[in-house]
Design a protein around this nucleic acid. Structure first.
Lengths: 190, 190
DNA sequence: AATTGACCATTTTGTTCATTTAGTCACATC
DNA sequence: GATGTGACTAAATGAACAAAATGGTCAATT
């Protein structure tokens, strides 16, 4: 029973955060949705912020799993990174929770949400960085600063997947893969 | 006399926009600073917004001039684009007006300022795009979509110059040049 | 021991109203 | 009579206050 209660609360909170955002979700609301007294929430979570934090932590795990699933050992480093990055951003683009929270950061700038989204970004960055380091060890790519490379790769993907659309027709997955290969691997020099 | 009056107004407005931002600058203030009656401002500019627009238009010219000055025919395309982009962002980073207005977009989101800053971005993009097209014609670089390439180059520079600093030690001009060359020209493949 | 909801301190929201502001225009100045 | 002006107006803003809502606690309940 008690094990389930925590899950009920997390599910209710996830639903409400996804639908209304963090700020507009009240603890009373979550308690009602979870069929739980308000006090019970505070036996599992020290604050509203910690509740959000725990939810995002499991989103991070989900995202990593999703990325792992699209990668494969018999593919090139380039193909794997492309697939992983695309999958990660696809996840962010499709899941109500991340959409809503990203929106909230843009529109209201709720500090708690800002922090937690920063954590998500850092986790993604660390994940890519790890892949880059492994590829360098194996000699699959030229030597480079893994931190900066991961940072730039993510920026480039975000630019191609999210920002390009703001002023142009969206790019297909294949186009993005081509562009990624062209700029990051082949380079523009003849 | 009349010729000077317009310049006086523009200078006063530029000073005030730089110091307090667009929203916090009143027309009365500008009139006082310019030693001019309020009505006079409206004989030269149809609205406060148009005053801002005219100021930004000349900033665009200034930026282009600044970029032209650092480029030179006996340098490679890569070196020239690097110099131009770095100079442009340096300009944005140093000039009070652009700093303040960019801040205002982030913090308040004043629509008039948002629009005018978008215009500035589009001008920069068009400028880089033109350079890329010329380089392709001359056969200095591989064929590619000039629009997307300009977009990505600018994003990459903004990421390196402004965003990297948010969580790391700033990169030197030389480091940025190296990174730019590594990713955009040579590529990571061995 | 686990759960709860009434309760409290603090924030947030809604409302009112005085002040400020962008923009106009009748008048002053040369 | 062309140019320049600041008092004026309608609309926007924000200060001040009251009312409602919210996160978190804890004594009572099961």
């Amino acid at each position: 029973m008690s094990v389930n209660r925590k899950q009920q609360i997390i599910e209710a909170a996830t639903k409400s955060f996804s639908l209304f955002g963090y700020k507009a979700t009240t603890i009373d609301q979550v308690a009602k949705l979870a069929n739980v007294g308000k006090g019970t929430i505070y036996t599992f979570f020290k604050s509203k912020e910690e509740l959000l934090d725990e939810i995002i932590s499991s989103v991070i795990v989900e995202i990593k799993t999703a990325a792992e699933q699209v990668m494969s050992d018999d593919q090139s480093f380039f193909e794997n990174v492309h697939r992983a990055l695309y999958r990660i951003l696809e996840f962010r683009k499709q899941h109500q929770l991340t959409i809503k929270l990203l929106q909230e950061v843009r529109d209201i700038g709720t500090p708690a949400v800002q922090e937690v989204m920063g954590k998500l970004d850092r986790a993604i960055l660390a994940y890519i960085r790890d892949k880059i380091e492994k590829a360098m060890e194996k000699g699959e790519i030229r030597h480079c600063d893994a931190e900066i490379t991961a940072f730039l790769m993510l920026k480039m993907y975000i630019a191609l997947v999210f920002e390009w659309e703001k002023s142009h027709a969206p790019l297909s997955k294949e186009q993005i893969a081509e562009l990624f290969e062209l700029y990051f691997f082949k380079g523009l020099s003849k």
